[in-house]
Design a protein around this nucleic acid. Sequence first.
DNA 1: TTAGGGTTAG
Length: 620
Amino acid sequence: MENIITPSPSSYSISLTHDTDSRNSSIIHKLESCKSLKELKQIHSYIIKTSPTLPHQTQQLVYTTIISISARTSNHVPDITYIHSLFNKLENPTIDLYNIVIRSFNHSNQNPLFALLFYSDLLVKGLIGDSFTYPYVLKSCTLSYALREGEQIHSHVIKNGFVLNLYVVNTLISFYGACGAMENAQKVFDESPERDLVTWTTLIQGYVKRGCLEKGMQVFYEMCEAGVRADEMTMVILISSCAKLRDINLGIKLHKYIYDHDLNFDVYICNALVDMYLKCGNPTLAIKLFNKMPLKNIVSWNSIILGLIQQGKFKIAMNVFKKMQSQKVKPDNITLVGVLNCCANLGTLKQGKWVHSYINKNGIKTDGFIGNALLDMYTKCGDIKKATYVFNHMKHKDVYTYTNMILGFAIHGEGQKALKLFSEMPKIGITPNDVTYLAVLMACAHCGFVKEGFNHFVNMLKVHNIKPQKEHYGCMVDLLGRAGLLSEAEDFIRNMNIEPDGLIWGALLAACGTHKNVEIGKRVMEKVDKMMDKDKDKDGAFILMSNLYSSENRFRDAFKLRKIMKERKIKKSPGCSSIEVDDVAYEFRKGDKSHQQTKEIYMLLDIMGKHLKNNDQIII
DNA sequence: TTAGGGTTAG
């Protein structure tokens, strides 16, 4: 590499003595060969030092060349001060040069609005933007969501007669769409005499981004009527919009459109389709398409894994992850969040720990999504110590981090710790949300903090303007019920601002079971029976009540209830738990005899039960 | 040197 820090004349060898043309081309060649902005600046200063009396024309050429090189080279981040200082030295910068610089800010990691400085500079110099300038400047406004500035540019577009330019029209629609000003976007669209696929797609995209999914679809139908054929990009936008609409029939029609119009089933289209089928509740079609995909990228794997998780198919999702590993596809943060979610729901602590060590080995930061997913996994898998460790080591905590940790403490019976954490939130500027309050109320319920629970329940609306939902009311019933305040719980339900459902009455019924209160239990049971539509959802309530009768020696009532269950074909759906042994998650249901070692399992269970009854310490 | 730049996470 050349020594450019202390350049010698031979290393640059710019021929300053030859004729003008050859000297100019030598300088340009040297500047063009620069690999960084630093090098460019060094050569510039070298030229100034060694030839302070360059002819005016050559000087201007040097400035123009430096500006265009520093602006157009992708690894040269535009240095706004430097470029601006060079611009000031130029007598007549051309509109082309302005365009190059303005464009460079759209591709840099600097504030795109810097482009506007150059645009106003251009106006000061008495120049007028051309058909390239406006798309570039509008793009800068789009990237910065600068509605007011963009509107001003729009007025310049009208004044300077560029409203008929399709590139300008399309960028205007995109700009208004990004800023959420869909009325303006639609107006530009309506007033344009010419429209192409980009115009239609941009308008559709605008509506979809705003969440106006049906309207976006309606524009697509209008586009079809206008005889414009969609391309792959249009279809991806429509399919993902359809996924959000959860409309499988529409999804199938869009799928057919791709076939009928001979579009490419590229990786984007396939990913969008897989995601759509999963979100619309058809994992079979999603898996079929996924298996047929000729080319898969990380998004394909993530879409299928996360989609299966959304469907509650954690084991299948885990198997897909294993397949992904066997094909040597490197998981990214999104995959890991999904896998941790699986571990949390399957209770597979060992696999969760493996993911944690993978994260550490690969230097992935345990912040944000990843940190929260790790925390969730440890709390749900019952390792509160590790969960606390993860929490304490997270640098950037957000409302999800706090909610997770509070919930962790709540379900582990550490109510004081949960409430202490909750009290820390406002101090560091994190506002609790509805789920945070659910965790707080759970903590109070699990630890018998009736007074605190009520205070928090009131503060939800009073302090944070969060309207309590059914789940919060359910927690309050649970809180009173667990504390044995059964009549209070019954009154609470009757005075609620929302209509109680079977689940809320069910929470009270469970408390009646715990505290052996047959009278209230009987009343509540009748309520549950009336409230719940489907008999099959009442199984838990019937069993609870029948057990309550039995525990109070009212066997005749218990028998009567069981008889009703039989007549109405109400069957108890078996509770399910899972255990992880040697990386395999085993699920168990009551009466399940499908495991090979069923005999040994039940024998051990029997022994453990006896020990537990005697309060023995169990060592296996 | 032009425009839409598309798919996956609470």
